[in-house]
Amino acid sequence: MTSMPGPDPANGGPSVFSSATQALLDSVKRAGFPPIHEQPLAQARRSYSLGVGATALPPLPMARVEDFHIPGPAGQIPARLWAASQAPDMPVFLYLHGGGFVIGGIDTCEAMCTVLAQRSGGAVVAIDYRLAPEHKFPAGLDDSFAALQWLAAQGHTRGLDASRMAVGGDSAGGTLAASTALMARDAGIPLVLQALFYPSVQLGMKTESLMAYSRSTLLSWDLMHWFEKQTQGGAQRERWHREPLHAPSHTGVAPAWIGLAQCDPLTDEGHLYAARLREAGVPVVLREWPGVIHDFINMGRFLPEAAQAHDALGEALKQAWAR
C-alpha cells in the first residue's frame, strides 16, 4: 500500500502548523544546532536529553519516586516508579520512552510520567531498555516484555496490582508498547489498556503524512533513516516485533488509546494501526491534536497541546483502571 505525497510546508505547500509550533520550529532553526543524526552518538543522546529538558515542563513532585532494577534477559534493567500517593495495591502503567530505539531514557519521559501518575491515580514505571547500536533490535523489545512480565509476577512486591496493568509509549516506545501488548496477549497477561503516542508500526510505506512532514519538522527523513540503520542487524524473530501493523492477528489484544500529532510523518501510521485494531474488534480511542509535530508531548513549555495530551491519557488510564 502506497499513498500519494501530500503537501509539504517546506516546499510551498499550505502550512497547518499552529502559531506556537511555527514559532518553536523557527527558534530551533535560528539556533543552528546540528541535527541529531549528524552528531556523534554520545553527543546525540546528550543533545536530545538537553532538548527535552529545555522544552518539557518540569516533573511534578511525587509522594513516591523509587529507583530500582528489574531482571532482564541481558542483566538488570534500570527502572523508576512515580506515584502521587502511598496507597497500597496501585494500578500500574509501564511506560516506554521514545527516541528511535537509539536515544532517550527515563529522564526524557519523567515529566510526563509524573503528570500521568497524578492524573490517573496509579503508579507509572519507566525503564531504560537497551539501546541501539550497542544493542540491536529486538534488545529493547526483549527488555520491555521482561519488565511487563516482572510487573505481572512481582509487581506486588512494590505495592502494585497486576490485575490493573497497562503499557504505553511514544514513537519508538509506542512501537515497543504495541508489540509488547501483542506479546502479552499471547502469554496470557491481561492488560486494561495500550496507550500509543504516534507509534511507528511499519516500514517502507510512503504515506501522505510521511511525504508531507519528513522535511519540514524535527523528525526528518534523514533522522528516521539514521535511527533505523542503527537498529538493524539483530536476531529479529518476527517481522511484527518491529512492525506490529503486520502481526498475523490483532484479535484479543488490549483496548487501545492512540494519540497523534497532525503535522507528523507518523500520523498516517497511527490511523492505519487504529483501523487494523478496529477490524479485529479491539476498542480504540484515537485523538489527533491539530497543528503540532512529532514529540509534542515533550514540548509543554511551548505547546499547550502537550498538557492537553497528558491530561487526556491520564483520564483514559483512570477510566480503564476503574472498569
Rank of each mutant, 00 (worst) to 15 (best):
V282T: 14
P265A: 07
P91A: 02
L286V: 07
A132V: 09
L94H: 03
N298C: 15
H241C: 09
V115G: 04
Q194R: 08
F137K: 03
G174N: 10
L223E: 11
K29G: 08
A274N: 12
V28K: 10
M112V: 04
G105I: 02
A195W: 02
L60A: 04
R323D: 13
R239G: 03
D295Y: 13
D143N: 01
F68C: 09
T157C: 03
E238T: 11
L219F: 14
R119K: 15
G233N: 03
A31Y: 06
Y48T: 01
V102E: 09
G291Q: 08
G155V: 09
S144Y: 03
E269G: 06
M205V: 15
T114R: 00
A23E: 12
L219Q: 10
G252Q: 06
K136V: 07
D161F: 05
D222T: 12
H246V: 14
P9V: 05
E315K: 00
G169Q: 03
A123I: 04
L182I: 12
D143L: 00
V285Q: 13
R119M: 00
W240D: 03
S163P: 10
M62P: 00
K229Q: 14
G6W: 04
W321I: 00
S209G: 10
A184M: 07
V28W: 07
F33Q: 14
M205I: 15
R164I: 04
A117V: 00
S49C: 09
I103G: 05
